[in-house]
Amino acid sequence: MRERLCSKVACAREAVSTLTYDYEDQMAAVGPLGGDDDPHAHDLCAIHTDRLSVPRGWVVVRHETISNR
């Protein structure tokens, strides 16, 4: 499987999450790395996932996976 890299300019780290925007509802959703390489989604590395910021008034929804360790 091809490694997916972070979508941020000049970042060469491996992507760990996928970010999508809903402009109508002013919402950003961040979740586990999507299964497909969707041209409307943005793959992010761990650092850029943690540093994510959105415009004032927007809501960020974070979907976490629960591991059964």
Score class of each variant (00 low, 15 high):
1 M>F: 14
2 R>S: 13
2 R>W: 11
3 E>K: 09
3 E>Q: 12
3 E>F: 07
3 E>L: 10
4 R>T: 14
4 R>G: 09
5 L>S: 09
5 L>G: 08
5 L>C: 07
6 C>N: 06
7 S>H: 08
7 S>Q: 03
8 K>T: 08
8 K>W: 04
9 V>L: 05
9 V>P: 01
9 V>M: 01
10 A>M: 10
12 A>R: 11
13 R>T: 13
13 R>H: 15
13 R>G: 11
13 R>S: 15
14 E>N: 10
15 A>R: 11
16 V>N: 06
16 V>G: 07
17 S>W: 02
17 S>G: 11
18 T>Y: 03
18 T>L: 05
18 T>Q: 05
18 T>E: 01
18 T>D: 02
18 T>R: 07
18 T>M: 04
19 L>Y: 02
19 L>A: 03
20 T>G: 13
21 Y>P: 02
21 Y>I: 06
21 Y>Q: 12
22 D>Q: 09
22 D>H: 12
22 D>C: 12
23 Y>Q: 13
23 Y>F: 13
23 Y>W: 11
23 Y>R: 13
24 E>G: 14
24 E>H: 14
24 E>F: 15
24 E>Q: 15
26 Q>Y: 10
26 Q>K: 15
26 Q>C: 15
27 M>A: 15
27 M>I: 14
27 M>R: 15
27 M>S: 14
28 A>Y: 07
29 A>G: 05
29 A>C: 11
30 V>C: 12
32 P>Y: 03
32 P>F: 05
34 G>K: 04
35 G>F: 01
36 D>C: 04
37 D>P: 01
37 D>Y: 01
38 D>Y: 00
38 D>V: 00
38 D>F: 01
38 D>M: 04
39 P>M: 06
40 H>R: 09
40 H>L: 10
41 A>K: 06
41 A>T: 03
42 H>K: 02
42 H>E: 14
43 D>V: 05
43 D>Y: 04
43 D>K: 01
43 D>I: 04
44 L>H: 08
44 L>Y: 12
45 C>Q: 07
45 C>V: 06
45 C>F: 11
47 I>S: 03
47 I>E: 00
47 I>H: 06
47 I>D: 00
48 H>C: 14
48 H>G: 10
48 H>W: 06
49 T>C: 03
50 D>G: 11
50 D>T: 09
50 D>M: 07
51 R>H: 00
51 R>G: 02
51 R>L: 05
52 L>M: 03
52 L>H: 02
52 L>Q: 00
53 S>G: 05
53 S>A: 08
53 S>I: 07
54 V>H: 00
55 P>M: 02
55 P>I: 04
56 R>F: 04
56 R>S: 09
56 R>V: 10
56 R>I: 09
57 G>F: 05
58 W>E: 01
58 W>L: 01
58 W>D: 02
59 V>I: 13
59 V>Y: 05
59 V>W: 05
59 V>T: 13
59 V>A: 09
59 V>L: 13
60 V>I: 15
61 V>S: 11
62 R>V: 09
63 H>D: 11
63 H>G: 06
64 E>G: 07
64 E>Y: 07
64 E>A: 12
64 E>I: 09
64 E>V: 12
65 T>R: 00
65 T>D: 02
65 T>Y: 00
66 I>T: 00
66 I>R: 00
66 I>H: 00
66 I>Q: 01
67 S>Y: 10
67 S>C: 06
68 N>W: 03
